[in-house]
Amino acid sequence: MESFDFIVIGGGMMGAPCARYLAEAGHRVALVCPPEPARYADSAGPFASHWDAARITRHVASDPVWARASARSIARYSDLEARSGRRIYHETGALMAGLRDGPLADWTAGFLRVADGVEGAARLDAAEVRDRLGIALPVGAVSSFEATGGGWMDPRAMRAAQTELAQAAGATLIPQAATARAGGTVTLADGSRLAGGHVVVATGPHAGSDGLLPARPAMTVWARTVAFARLSEAEGARLAALPSLIWVPEGWDHDLYMLPPVRYPDGRLYLKIGGQKDGPTIGSGGAMRDWFHGTGDPQVGARLLAEMRRVLPGLDVEAERLGPCAVVWSRTGYPYIERLDEHVTVLCGGNGASAKCGDEWGRLGAVAATGGDPSGEGYPEGFAAAWD
Protein backbone atom coordinates (compact mmCIF):
# COMPACT_ATOMS: atom_id res chain seq x y z
CA MET A 1 0.00 0.00 0.00
CA GLU A 2 1.11 3.53 -0.74
CA SER A 3 1.40 5.46 2.52
CA PHE A 4 0.56 9.09 3.34
CA ASP A 5 0.52 11.33 6.38
CA PHE A 6 -3.07 12.34 5.62
CA ILE A 7 -5.77 10.96 3.35
CA VAL A 8 -8.59 13.41 2.60
CA ILE A 9 -11.69 11.67 1.26
CA GLY A 10 -13.84 14.07 -0.74
CA GLY A 11 -12.62 16.84 -3.01
CA GLY A 12 -15.51 19.26 -2.72
CA MET A 13 -15.81 22.73 -1.23
CA MET A 14 -14.32 21.64 2.12
CA GLY A 15 -12.20 18.61 1.28
CA ALA A 16 -10.14 20.12 -1.55
CA PRO A 17 -8.98 23.15 0.48
CA CYS A 18 -8.31 20.92 3.49
CA ALA A 19 -5.96 18.83 1.34
CA ARG A 20 -4.29 22.00 0.05
CA TYR A 21 -3.68 23.41 3.50
CA LEU A 22 -2.24 20.10 4.71
CA ALA A 23 0.01 19.76 1.65
CA GLU A 24 1.21 23.36 1.84
CA ALA A 25 2.12 22.72 5.50
CA GLY A 26 4.54 20.04 4.29
CA HIS A 27 2.51 16.89 4.91
CA ARG A 28 2.32 13.97 2.49
CA VAL A 29 -1.32 14.05 1.38
CA ALA A 30 -3.62 11.93 -0.77
CA LEU A 31 -6.83 13.55 -2.00
CA VAL A 32 -9.40 10.88 -2.85
CA CYS A 33 -11.76 12.59 -5.26
CA PRO A 34 -13.68 11.01 -8.16
CA PRO A 35 -14.16 13.20 -11.24
CA GLU A 36 -17.43 14.85 -12.18
CA PRO A 37 -19.73 12.38 -13.94
CA ALA A 38 -20.19 13.08 -17.63
CA ARG A 39 -23.91 12.50 -17.07
CA TYR A 40 -25.55 12.01 -13.68
CA ALA A 41 -28.07 9.61 -15.20
CA ASP A 42 -25.25 7.21 -16.15
CA SER A 43 -23.33 7.46 -12.87
CA ALA A 44 -23.53 5.27 -9.78
CA GLY A 45 -22.09 8.12 -7.70
CA PRO A 46 -20.86 9.61 -5.55
CA PHE A 47 -22.74 12.77 -6.44
CA ALA A 48 -22.04 16.40 -5.56
CA SER A 49 -24.07 19.58 -5.84
CA HIS A 50 -20.90 21.65 -6.27
CA TRP A 51 -20.66 20.49 -9.89
CA ASP A 52 -22.22 23.77 -10.96
CA ALA A 53 -21.22 27.10 -12.48
CA ALA A 54 -22.34 29.53 -9.77
CA ARG A 55 -22.96 29.97 -6.06
CA ILE A 56 -23.82 33.18 -4.21
CA THR A 57 -21.01 34.74 -2.22
CA ARG A 58 -21.43 37.55 0.29
CA HIS A 59 -20.17 38.91 3.61
CA VAL A 60 -23.62 39.51 5.07
CA ALA A 61 -25.33 36.54 6.73
CA SER A 62 -27.93 36.08 9.43
CA ASP A 63 -25.37 34.34 11.68
CA PRO A 64 -22.06 35.98 12.66
CA VAL A 65 -20.18 32.65 12.55
CA TRP A 66 -21.09 32.14 8.91
CA ALA A 67 -20.37 35.80 8.20
CA ARG A 68 -16.86 35.50 9.63
CA ALA A 69 -16.11 32.32 7.69
CA SER A 70 -17.35 33.99 4.50
CA ALA A 71 -15.26 37.12 5.04
CA ARG A 72 -12.12 35.10 5.64
CA SER A 73 -12.69 32.98 2.55
CA ILE A 74 -13.58 35.90 0.27
CA ALA A 75 -10.39 37.66 1.36
CA ARG A 76 -8.42 34.69 -0.03
CA TYR A 77 -10.16 34.43 -3.41
CA SER A 78 -7.68 36.74 -5.14
CA ASP A 79 -4.70 34.70 -3.93
CA LEU A 80 -6.29 31.48 -5.17
CA GLU A 81 -7.04 33.09 -8.53
CA ALA A 82 -3.54 34.51 -8.90
CA ARG A 83 -1.80 31.26 -8.05
CA SER A 84 -4.10 28.97 -10.04
CA GLY A 85 -4.79 31.22 -13.03
CA ARG A 86 -8.52 30.44 -12.71
CA ARG A 87 -11.38 32.95 -12.48
CA ILE A 88 -13.32 32.08 -9.33
CA TYR A 89 -14.99 35.27 -8.12
CA HIS A 90 -17.43 37.57 -9.93
CA GLU A 91 -18.23 40.78 -8.04
CA THR A 92 -21.78 41.58 -9.16
CA GLY A 93 -23.10 42.72 -5.76
CA ALA A 94 -25.31 40.79 -3.35
CA LEU A 95 -28.74 41.68 -2.00
CA MET A 96 -30.37 40.10 1.07
CA ALA A 97 -33.99 41.05 1.74
CA GLY A 98 -36.54 40.06 4.34
CA LEU A 99 -39.56 41.22 6.29
CA ARG A 100 -39.46 42.65 9.80
CA ASP A 101 -42.61 40.76 10.76
CA GLY A 102 -43.69 37.15 10.32
CA PRO A 103 -41.95 33.79 10.69
CA LEU A 104 -38.57 35.05 9.42
CA ALA A 105 -38.42 38.27 11.44
CA ASP A 106 -35.46 36.95 13.47
CA TRP A 107 -33.62 35.98 10.29
CA THR A 108 -34.12 39.50 8.91
CA ALA A 109 -32.97 41.10 12.15
CA GLY A 110 -29.91 38.86 12.16
CA PHE A 111 -28.62 39.77 8.73
CA LEU A 112 -29.32 43.46 9.33
CA ARG A 113 -27.20 43.35 12.49
CA VAL A 114 -24.36 41.69 10.61
CA ALA A 115 -24.72 44.15 7.71
CA ASP A 116 -24.22 47.09 10.10
CA GLY A 117 -20.65 45.86 10.56
CA VAL A 118 -19.89 45.19 6.90
CA GLU A 119 -18.12 48.04 5.15
CA GLY A 120 -20.08 49.28 2.15
CA ALA A 121 -23.30 47.39 2.92
CA ALA A 122 -26.27 49.74 2.49
CA ARG A 123 -29.84 49.37 3.68
CA LEU A 124 -32.46 49.76 0.96
CA ASP A 125 -36.24 49.60 1.12
CA ALA A 126 -38.36 47.88 -1.52
CA ALA A 127 -38.87 51.05 -3.56
CA GLU A 128 -35.14 51.80 -3.65
CA VAL A 129 -34.35 48.23 -4.71
CA ARG A 130 -36.81 48.45 -7.60
CA ASP A 131 -35.53 51.85 -8.72
CA ARG A 132 -31.83 50.96 -8.48
CA LEU A 133 -31.81 47.27 -9.39
CA GLY A 134 -35.10 46.51 -11.14
CA ILE A 135 -36.01 43.87 -8.55
CA ALA A 136 -39.60 43.78 -7.29
CA LEU A 137 -39.51 42.85 -3.60
CA PRO A 138 -42.61 42.56 -1.41
CA VAL A 139 -43.92 45.83 0.00
CA GLY A 140 -42.33 46.41 3.39
CA ALA A 141 -39.21 44.40 2.63
CA VAL A 142 -35.95 45.73 4.00
CA SER A 143 -32.63 44.75 2.51
CA SER A 144 -28.87 44.94 2.73
CA PHE A 145 -27.01 45.56 -0.51
CA GLU A 146 -23.29 44.84 -0.90
CA ALA A 147 -22.42 46.67 -4.10
CA THR A 148 -18.82 45.54 -3.60
CA GLY A 149 -17.63 42.41 -1.86
CA GLY A 150 -20.59 40.29 -2.92
CA GLY A 151 -21.64 38.45 -6.04
CA TRP A 152 -21.07 34.87 -7.10
CA MET A 153 -18.28 32.34 -7.27
CA ASP A 154 -17.72 29.40 -9.60
CA PRO A 155 -17.59 26.19 -7.51
CA ARG A 156 -16.11 24.13 -10.35
CA ALA A 157 -13.29 26.67 -10.73
CA MET A 158 -12.82 26.80 -6.95
CA ARG A 159 -12.57 23.03 -6.68
CA ALA A 160 -10.13 22.88 -9.61
CA ALA A 161 -7.97 25.67 -8.18
CA GLN A 162 -7.81 24.06 -4.73
CA THR A 163 -7.01 20.65 -6.21
CA GLU A 164 -4.33 21.95 -8.57
CA LEU A 165 -2.66 23.98 -5.81
CA ALA A 166 -2.75 20.97 -3.49
CA GLN A 167 -1.01 18.94 -6.19
CA ALA A 168 1.49 21.73 -6.76
CA ALA A 169 2.32 21.46 -3.05
CA GLY A 170 2.92 17.72 -3.42
CA ALA A 171 -0.50 16.16 -2.81
CA THR A 172 -1.44 13.05 -4.78
CA LEU A 173 -4.84 13.08 -6.48
CA ILE A 174 -6.66 9.73 -6.42
CA PRO A 175 -9.47 10.11 -9.01
CA GLN A 176 -11.87 7.51 -7.65
CA ALA A 177 -14.22 6.94 -4.74
CA ALA A 178 -13.41 5.47 -1.34
CA THR A 179 -15.57 2.51 -0.37
CA ALA A 180 -14.34 1.65 3.14
CA ARG A 181 -12.10 2.79 5.97
CA ALA A 182 -10.52 0.76 8.76
CA GLY A 183 -8.43 2.92 11.05
CA GLY A 184 -6.05 4.76 8.77
CA THR A 185 -6.48 2.35 5.86
CA VAL A 186 -8.79 3.40 3.00
CA THR A 187 -10.14 1.01 0.38
CA LEU A 188 -10.79 2.45 -3.07
CA ALA A 189 -13.42 1.57 -5.66
CA ASP A 190 -10.92 -0.47 -7.68
CA GLY A 191 -10.11 -2.61 -4.63
CA SER A 192 -6.70 -1.06 -3.93
CA ARG A 193 -5.88 0.41 -0.54
CA LEU A 194 -4.10 3.45 0.85
CA ALA A 195 -2.43 3.73 4.25
CA GLY A 196 -2.71 7.02 6.11
CA GLY A 197 -1.50 8.30 9.41
CA HIS A 198 -4.83 10.13 9.62
CA VAL A 199 -7.99 10.29 7.48
CA VAL A 200 -10.24 13.32 6.94
CA VAL A 201 -13.77 12.37 5.85
CA ALA A 202 -15.24 15.25 3.83
CA THR A 203 -17.88 13.45 1.80
CA GLY A 204 -20.69 15.99 2.11
CA PRO A 205 -24.19 14.49 1.80
CA HIS A 206 -22.73 10.98 1.61
CA ALA A 207 -21.16 11.20 5.09
CA GLY A 208 -24.32 9.87 6.70
CA SER A 209 -24.48 6.75 4.56
CA ASP A 210 -21.03 5.86 3.21
CA GLY A 211 -19.81 4.16 6.42
CA LEU A 212 -16.48 5.98 6.49
CA LEU A 213 -17.08 7.53 9.93
CA PRO A 214 -17.35 5.56 13.20
CA ALA A 215 -21.02 6.57 13.59
CA ARG A 216 -23.67 8.43 11.63
CA PRO A 217 -23.44 12.23 11.96
CA ALA A 218 -26.64 13.91 13.15
CA MET A 219 -27.59 15.54 9.91
CA THR A 220 -30.48 15.64 7.49
CA VAL A 221 -29.85 15.37 3.78
CA TRP A 222 -32.64 17.11 1.88
CA ALA A 223 -33.45 16.44 -1.75
CA ARG A 224 -33.79 19.86 -3.32
CA THR A 225 -34.94 21.08 -6.72
CA VAL A 226 -33.29 23.96 -8.57
CA ALA A 227 -34.65 25.70 -11.65
CA PHE A 228 -32.92 27.38 -14.58
CA ALA A 229 -34.25 29.98 -17.02
CA ARG A 230 -32.32 30.20 -20.28
CA LEU A 231 -31.89 33.73 -21.60
CA SER A 232 -31.13 35.16 -25.00
CA GLU A 233 -27.94 37.16 -25.34
CA ALA A 234 -30.04 40.34 -25.49
CA GLU A 235 -31.96 39.51 -22.33
CA GLY A 236 -28.75 38.52 -20.59
CA ALA A 237 -27.25 41.90 -21.51
CA ARG A 238 -30.35 43.69 -20.19
CA LEU A 239 -30.00 41.90 -16.86
CA ALA A 240 -26.20 41.96 -16.70
CA ALA A 241 -26.19 44.36 -13.72
CA LEU A 242 -28.34 42.10 -11.52
CA PRO A 243 -26.81 41.23 -8.16
CA SER A 244 -27.05 37.87 -6.47
CA LEU A 245 -30.30 37.81 -4.51
CA ILE A 246 -31.62 36.15 -1.36
CA TRP A 247 -35.14 37.17 -0.42
CA VAL A 248 -38.42 36.14 1.18
CA PRO A 249 -41.40 36.28 -1.20
CA GLU A 250 -44.66 37.63 0.17
CA GLY A 251 -46.46 35.00 2.25
CA TRP A 252 -43.56 32.54 2.30
CA ASP A 253 -42.01 31.05 5.43
CA HIS A 254 -38.56 30.53 3.91
CA ASP A 255 -36.15 32.41 1.71
CA LEU A 256 -35.22 31.85 -1.92
CA TYR A 257 -32.00 32.59 -3.77
CA MET A 258 -31.31 33.61 -7.35
CA LEU A 259 -28.11 34.09 -9.31
CA PRO A 260 -27.62 36.78 -11.98
CA PRO A 261 -27.10 35.67 -15.60
CA VAL A 262 -24.26 33.14 -15.69
CA ARG A 263 -22.81 31.42 -18.74
CA TYR A 264 -22.91 27.65 -18.26
CA PRO A 265 -20.69 25.03 -19.96
CA ASP A 266 -23.17 24.68 -22.85
CA GLY A 267 -22.39 28.29 -23.77
CA ARG A 268 -25.86 29.58 -22.82
CA LEU A 269 -26.83 32.20 -20.24
CA TYR A 270 -29.04 31.07 -17.35
CA LEU A 271 -30.70 32.51 -14.28
CA LYS A 272 -30.72 29.95 -11.48
CA ILE A 273 -33.21 29.90 -8.60
CA GLY A 274 -33.57 27.65 -5.58
CA GLY A 275 -34.89 27.49 -2.06
CA GLN A 276 -37.09 24.94 -0.34
CA LYS A 277 -38.12 24.28 3.25
CA ASP A 278 -39.58 20.81 3.14
CA GLY A 279 -39.46 17.89 0.75
CA PRO A 280 -38.02 14.38 0.71
CA THR A 281 -34.96 13.40 2.69
CA ILE A 282 -32.16 11.11 1.52
CA GLY A 283 -30.98 8.40 3.88
CA SER A 284 -29.06 5.94 1.73
CA GLY A 285 -26.73 5.70 -1.21
CA GLY A 286 -29.49 4.17 -3.30
CA ALA A 287 -31.87 7.03 -2.56
CA MET A 288 -29.12 9.52 -3.43
CA ARG A 289 -28.52 7.79 -6.75
CA ASP A 290 -32.23 7.73 -7.58
CA TRP A 291 -32.59 11.43 -6.81
CA PHE A 292 -29.63 12.51 -8.92
CA HIS A 293 -30.75 10.32 -11.78
CA GLY A 294 -33.89 12.45 -11.97
CA THR A 295 -34.61 16.08 -12.73
CA GLY A 296 -36.15 17.30 -9.47
CA ASP A 297 -39.75 17.96 -8.44
CA PRO A 298 -41.81 19.66 -11.19
CA GLN A 299 -44.21 21.28 -8.72
CA VAL A 300 -41.37 22.84 -6.73
CA GLY A 301 -39.72 23.96 -9.95
CA ALA A 302 -42.91 25.63 -11.19
CA ARG A 303 -43.23 27.60 -7.95
CA LEU A 304 -39.61 28.73 -8.14
CA LEU A 305 -39.92 29.89 -11.73
CA ALA A 306 -43.14 31.74 -10.93
CA GLU A 307 -41.34 33.66 -8.17
CA MET A 308 -38.46 34.40 -10.55
CA ARG A 309 -40.90 36.06 -12.93
CA ARG A 310 -42.57 37.91 -10.05
CA VAL A 311 -39.33 39.40 -8.76
CA LEU A 312 -38.08 40.28 -12.28
CA PRO A 313 -40.97 42.01 -14.07
CA GLY A 314 -40.85 41.68 -17.84
CA LEU A 315 -38.48 38.72 -17.79
CA ASP A 316 -38.15 37.09 -21.24
CA VAL A 317 -37.19 33.40 -21.03
CA GLU A 318 -36.18 31.18 -23.95
CA ALA A 319 -36.48 27.85 -22.12
CA GLU A 320 -36.75 26.38 -18.62
CA ARG A 321 -35.31 23.29 -17.00
CA LEU A 322 -35.01 21.74 -13.54
CA GLY A 323 -32.25 19.89 -11.77
CA PRO A 324 -31.59 17.86 -8.59
CA CYS A 325 -29.59 19.12 -5.64
CA ALA A 326 -28.83 17.78 -2.16
CA VAL A 327 -28.37 19.96 0.94
CA VAL A 328 -26.95 18.84 4.29
CA TRP A 329 -28.29 20.37 7.50
CA SER A 330 -26.41 19.56 10.69
CA ARG A 331 -28.06 19.47 14.10
CA THR A 332 -25.94 22.39 15.33
CA GLY A 333 -26.39 24.59 12.26
CA TYR A 334 -22.62 24.66 11.76
CA PRO A 335 -20.19 22.31 10.01
CA TYR A 336 -18.88 19.34 11.95
CA ILE A 337 -15.12 19.86 12.17
CA GLU A 338 -13.63 17.56 14.79
CA ARG A 339 -10.73 15.17 15.23
CA LEU A 340 -12.57 12.11 16.56
CA ASP A 341 -9.59 9.89 17.39
CA GLU A 342 -6.05 9.19 16.25
CA HIS A 343 -7.31 7.88 12.91
CA VAL A 344 -10.11 10.14 11.67
CA THR A 345 -11.42 13.72 11.47
CA VAL A 346 -14.93 14.62 10.34
CA LEU A 347 -15.36 17.61 8.02
CA CYS A 348 -18.93 17.93 6.76
CA GLY A 349 -22.21 19.82 7.16
CA GLY A 350 -22.49 22.64 4.64
CA ASN A 351 -25.97 23.73 5.79
CA GLY A 352 -26.73 25.08 2.35
CA ALA A 353 -24.10 27.82 2.55
CA SER A 354 -20.64 26.26 2.42
CA ALA A 355 -19.52 26.92 -1.16
CA LYS A 356 -18.58 30.55 -0.61
CA CYS A 357 -16.73 29.86 2.64
CA GLY A 358 -15.42 26.36 1.95
CA ASP A 359 -11.83 27.58 1.98
CA GLU A 360 -12.18 28.57 5.63
CA TRP A 361 -13.95 25.36 6.62
CA GLY A 362 -11.23 23.40 4.83
CA ARG A 363 -8.56 25.35 6.70
CA LEU A 364 -10.24 24.57 10.00
CA GLY A 365 -10.43 20.92 8.95
CA ALA A 366 -6.66 20.92 8.52
CA VAL A 367 -6.30 22.56 11.95
CA ALA A 368 -8.42 19.82 13.54
CA ALA A 369 -6.72 16.97 11.67
CA THR A 370 -3.30 18.11 12.89
CA GLY A 371 -4.47 18.22 16.51
CA GLY A 372 -5.49 21.87 16.79
CA ASP A 373 -8.74 23.31 18.11
CA PRO A 374 -10.95 24.93 15.43
CA SER A 375 -12.98 26.73 18.09
CA GLY A 376 -9.82 28.62 19.05
CA GLU A 377 -9.69 30.27 15.63
CA GLY A 378 -11.74 33.33 16.55
CA TYR A 379 -15.21 31.81 16.44
CA PRO A 380 -17.74 32.10 19.27
CA GLU A 381 -19.10 28.61 18.59
CA GLY A 382 -17.37 25.24 18.49
CA PHE A 383 -17.69 22.80 15.65
CA ALA A 384 -17.97 19.51 17.54
CA ALA A 385 -19.96 16.85 15.74
CA ALA A 386 -23.30 15.52 16.96
CA TRP A 387 -24.29 11.93 16.30
CA ASP A 388 -27.45 9.94 15.75
Rank of each mutant, 00 (worst) to 15 (best):
L80V: 02
I337L: 07
V199C: 11
K356I: 00
L231R: 05
A182D: 15
R156F: 08
A121W: 09
V248D: 01
A180G: 10
E250Q: 14
D131G: 14
L347G: 11
G196L: 09
A287M: 03
G314Q: 01
V262C: 00
H254L: 08
F6I: 08
R309Q: 12
A30G: 13
D255W: 13
A355G: 05
G333D: 09
A82E: 09
T281N: 00
T185R: 15
D125W: 10
Y379M: 04
L242G: 02
G283W: 02
I282P: 00
A141W: 06
R55S: 06
E381P: 00
R310N: 09
G378A: 03
P37D: 09
R58D: 02
A109D: 12
W252P: 01
G85H: 09
L304P: 00
A38M: 14
I282A: 03
A122G: 03
E235V: 10
S209A: 15
F145M: 04
K272I: 04
V60E: 04
P175C: 12
P217S: 11
H198F: 11
A234F: 01
V114C: 05
M288F: 13
A177Y: 13
R310G: 11
P260L: 07
V114M: 00
A122W: 07
E377I: 05
W152H: 07
L212R: 08
Y40A: 08
P243C: 07
A38N: 11
E146N: 01
D52L: 07
R230W: 03
L112H: 05
A168W: 00
G352Y: 10
S354F: 09
R39S: 13
G150C: 05
L213F: 13
M153D: 01
G196V: 12
G286M: 08
G279L: 09
D266W: 05
A166T: 01
Y89V: 09
T148Q: 12
G102W: 01
S78M: 07
D42E: 15
G197C: 11
A25F: 08
P214E: 06
A136I: 00
E377Q: 15
L31C: 10
V344Q: 05
G376W: 02
D125S: 13
A223V: 06
L194I: 12
L322Y: 11
V8Q: 07
R263M: 06
L271M: 09
A195D: 15
T281L: 05
D131N: 12
A169K: 09
M96Y: 06
R181W: 09
R130P: 02
I7D: 03
V300L: 01
G279K: 09
W329S: 11
S73K: 04
L188M: 10
D297W: 10
L340Y: 11
C33M: 14
P64M: 07
A19I: 00
T172S: 13
E342L: 05
Y21W: 08
C348V: 15
E128L: 14
P380T: 01
R58W: 06
A366I: 03
R68I: 01
I337N: 03
R159P: 06
D253I: 12
G151M: 03
P46E: 14
A355L: 11
A44V: 08
A157F: 10
L133E: 05
W222V: 07
R72L: 15
S144P: 04
A319C: 05
R331F: 04
A160T: 04
P217G: 09
C18A: 14
G117K: 04
V262W: 00
H27F: 14
E81Q: 13
E24R: 14
A207K: 04
R303E: 13
P17E: 00
